[in-house]
Design a protein around this nucleic acid. Structure first.
Length: 543
RNA sequence: GCGCCCGUAGCUCAGUUGGAUAGAGCGCUUGCCUCCGGAGCAAGAGGCCACAGGUUCGAAUCCUGUCGGGCGUACCA
């Protein structure tokens, strides 16, 4: 309907020889203002130097509107043109949902294009924490949205299993291992204190009981990496996330990509040596201080492989690249983009989604989290407490750019009045009605149902609500924000519950009306299921 | 100091590219089960959209400044 009206207005503007700017159509909040509103008359008022109402009248006079789509229109103060959709249009849309079913909501905006979403990317130094969890769910859900928009999506996990931190990890495990053998060995300075390393040390002892203080730390390091990665992958699996590619930073060294970047930047005159380190002139970018790319020890900082990695992403030819980072990485990406730019690479298609921190509250107290210290809460523990569905929903129900307060006590208590259950209940409730209808010999049958019977206020409101689904998906894709989806689904569930309270669906005295209402419920059920599947949440048929 | 994010009901948060009388959940007050699942619905109270200017037909939304909170500002990742 929006497309149709936009087309008609454009045609009419051409006819009148008026300027065609951006035609903004919106869905009015109040039903008395119709189903689609245009502000075009007000927008043109200045340019045409005429009153908006007058412009609206001239525009609309002589406009031909298909009565199968638009039933009527009104021109109201201060110059809105409000369009009211026809009942035929509404029922046609409903039929469309029932025809498309699990494809309803998909669009072709990314058709034939590839997208890569990089998320999690935690180095294997410890289990995933509550903080990683947000990124995990955000990234996976974004990937789902892109899939629904037609993209061929690659989910990627970038990691580094070399360098100082991993060495510290190996040393920490070695200390724990020797500790189990009765030695009193202190953890290395800045080492990893988490209890998970004690468990891993125990496993190692089982497998290889004869290691000692002479054993090369490399052995401990690689055992720790293997063990922790398996813990991480199991967490990801529990929450329904599966990466297509695990990209090892080391490969960038082995294939010489790191050196290539250094030599290109050097040729551009953007590198210089100081105090034994190699510096990158980022001051052109506006940073106060230049950044170190290679430490005086000869080891690169994280920035250098990050640049090389993103250069590879460009070479790999993705049409869209999405990086999901936590707010603590906010300073890294401008450097990377700057480096790509000076290397003459186009990077407009690289989008960065930054999410703010998760504050975890337990018994009203803020739990500070640090992987190296022992006092963190893992994603696994969170899933144990509230379940994967609740975890996934809570992580995406808020805007990524807002801080997320995750109150564990509340999340547990909310097993009774949780928005997740509200949505799942709506879905289950529909199935319950279907089961009961079947007992009475009634089934949803859109082909033969007389959908024009669906004309009561709450019923029309519910149908209208269903039509918004594709718009929400499209909006999520465009903005790379996903919280509008849970918000939308919640509203749909509310519209359903309201409809349910007002109208009895199964009425053996009125089979025609029952059929039509069952068809409507089926449409709602399809959308709930589609929406929940994008969120990675179960849509139960009974609870 | 500088950069990014946030500031909307008692609390947690929505509010599509600027639109019409700013919304929801929780909590509080009060109704609705002989009836398809009450994990629900209805009604009520609760607001100077942090503050001050500006842009315009029109601002919670855009611009500037101020105040408050978070994150960063490493030869850690």
């Amino acid at each position: 309907m929006f497309d149709y009206i936009e087309k008609q207005i454009t045609a009419r503007l051409n006819e009148l020889g008026w300027p065609i700017g951006q035609i903004q159509l919106s869905r009015p909040k109040k039903i008395e203002n119709g189903d689609c509103a245009s502000n075009i008359a007000m927008a043109l008022a200045k340019e045409l130097k005429r009153a908006p109402l007058e412009i609206a009248r001239e525009l609309m006079d002589g406009m031909v509107l298909d009565s199968g789509v638009v039933e009527k229109y009104e021109i109201v103060n201060p110059g809105f043109i409000n369009f009211f959709q026809s009942a035929d249009y509404l029922t046609a849309q409903l039929k469309n949902i029932l025809k498309l079913r699990e494809d309803f909501g998909k669009n072709a905006s990314g058709e034939g294009q590839t997208a890569q979403v990089e998320f999690v990317s935690a180095n294997p130094t410890g289990p995933l924490t509550v903080g990683h969890g947000r990124q995990t769910v955000l990234g996976d859900t974004l990937a789902n949205i892109l899939t629904w928009s037609g993209y061929d999506v690659t989910r990627e996990y970038y990691f580094n299993n070399a360098g100082r931190q991993m060495k510290l990890l190996g040393e920490s495990l070695k200390a724990r291992y020797l500790e189990l053998k009765g030695d009193t060995i202190l953890l290395p300075d800045g080492g990893y204190e988490g209890e998970y390393l004690i468990d891993i040390a125990r496993d190692l002892q089982q497998e290889q009981p004869d290691l000692n203080s002479e054993t090369d730390v490399e052995l401990f390091k690689s055992f720790a990496e293997k063990s922790i990665f398996s813990i991480i992958k199991s967490s990801l699996e529990r929450i329904g996330v599966k990466h297509d590619v695990f990209y090892n930073e080391r490969s960038l060294y082995e294939t010489g990509k790191i050196d290539e970047v250094l030599s290109i930047l050097s040729d551009k005159g953007l590198l210089y040596k100081k105090d034994g380190a190699t510096w990158f002139k980022t001051s052109d970018l506006g940073t106060e201080q230049d950044r170190v790319l290679v430490k005086s020890s000869g080891e690169p900082t994280y920035r250098l492989p990050d640049i090389a990695y993103h250069r590879e992403k460009i070479f790999r030819g993705f049409d869209l690249v999405v990086d999901v980072f936590g707010a603590d990485h906010i300073d890294a990406y401008p450097d990377v983009l700057f480096a790509l730019k000076v290397m003459g690479l186009k990077h407009d298609h690289i989008k960065v989604v930054i999410h703010q921190f998760v504050t975890l509250l337990r018994s009203g107290e803020v739990v500070k989290m640090s992987t190296r210290k022992a006092n963190f809460v893992t994603l696994d523990e969170l899933i144990d407490e509230v379940g994967a569905d609740v975890v996934r929903y809570f992580y995406v129900m808020r805007s990524a750019s807002s801080h997320l307060n995750f109150d564990l006590d509340l999340a547990k208590r909310q097993t009774e009045e949780n928005p997740v259950f509200y949505l799942q209940y709506a879905h289950a409730r529909i199935f319950s009605i279907f089961r009961r209808a079947k007992e009475r010999g009634l089934e949803a049958d859109a082909e033969n149902a007389d959908l024009s019977l669906l004309n009561e206020e709450l019923t029309v409101a519910l149908i209208n609500e269903t039509l918004g689904f594709p718009e929400v998906i499209e909006h999520c894709r465009r903005t790379l924000e996903i919280h509008p989806l849970p918000t939308y689904l919640y509203g749909l569930a509310t519209a359903l519950h309201k409809f349910y309270s007002e109208h009895k669906v199964i009425d053996t005295e009125n089979v025609e009306l029952s059929r039509a209402r069952l068809a409507l419920l089926e449409a709602v059920q399809i959308i709930l299921k589609n929406g929940l599947s994008i969120l990675g949440i179960n849509a139960p048929e009974q609870m």
